[in-house]
Design a protein around this nucleic acid. Sequence first.
DNA 1: GATTATTAGTCCTAATTAGAACTAAGTGAG
DNA 2: CTCACTTAGTTCTAATTAGGACTAATAATC
Lengths: 143, 143
Amino acid sequence: MEFLPLLREIVKSYQAFDNYSAPHIKSMDLTPPQFDVIATLGNQPPMTCKSLGDKTLITKGTLTGILDRLEIKGMIERKANEEDARSQKIALTTAGQAIFEHTFPTHMQHLEKAFKQLSPQQMVDLTSALKQLRESIEKLATH
Amino acid sequence: MEFLPLLREIVKSYQAFDNYSAPHIKSMDLTPPQFDVIATLGNQPPMTCKSLGDKTLITKGTLTGILDRLEIKGMIERKANEEDARSQKIALTTAGQAIFEHTFPTHMQHLEKAFKQLSPQQMVDLTSALKQLRESIEKLATH
DNA sequence: GATTATTAGTCCTAATTAGAACTAAGTGAG
DNA sequence: CTCACTTAGTTCTAATTAGGACTAATAATC
């Protein structure tokens, strides 16, 4: 049971980050998943739902609703995929692009403050330790 | 922007853990928050919603619904609080206690496997690095 | 080439989520 | 004591969440 403090700390870190990030995103009239989608589409060629879901870690059933709301807000559009009629290409509209250009840098600056306390070396070390743990968890999950 | 890999890794680690943990909890006919509540009440004297929410990091509006469902399942009961008529004491029923005794150790064993790859020292280091980061984030959030 | 299997996305359901409004009950200042 | 303030929980709403059923289209196999 010596792993409990670590587990607890992972959960609390994640939630602390969320509690810090979410109000700022809300002040831009977006929800966190909506911002995530806009940020992922920004400065990228249009992509399929599948690809968007893989990058944002949002499952397909959830993604449909998020895209519906962004479409109503006029920020994204669904276009037919020439190469594969099963799928679509999701792209930012001009309005969505403008939102991206305004909100993305602002939010990155907001987040950067939270990480300023760590040295670059600490960030590298922490990242690689978490990665090792994650990969060992993922290995088990596929069994 | 050097913090992005770390941020990404925190999110992915958290989700990897969730993806590993959730199916096992579901196999015991509970949802993750329901299990969280049972585990928090287990081997503890009855506690108020407030206290339960603080420990599980579940907000009060959410907690009401989770407790409703656990009450319907006969696992918890809400009892009047003698000392303060505004609040209640939440307690495991006999059935809930039995579920706790069966599912808690089983799930701990399941989780332990995921952390076996890390040495005790690595766990301590990782925990303290995350804690430092979290505390610096929390300091900003209170502004 | 026909059949089978896989893939992409939508729709549906049950549960969670945060936050705000609301009620009831305790606390504190005068 | 009385009025303002705080606290505990419920209720409500809009959005997310995962997962399964479903449709349409593509790929794979024989």
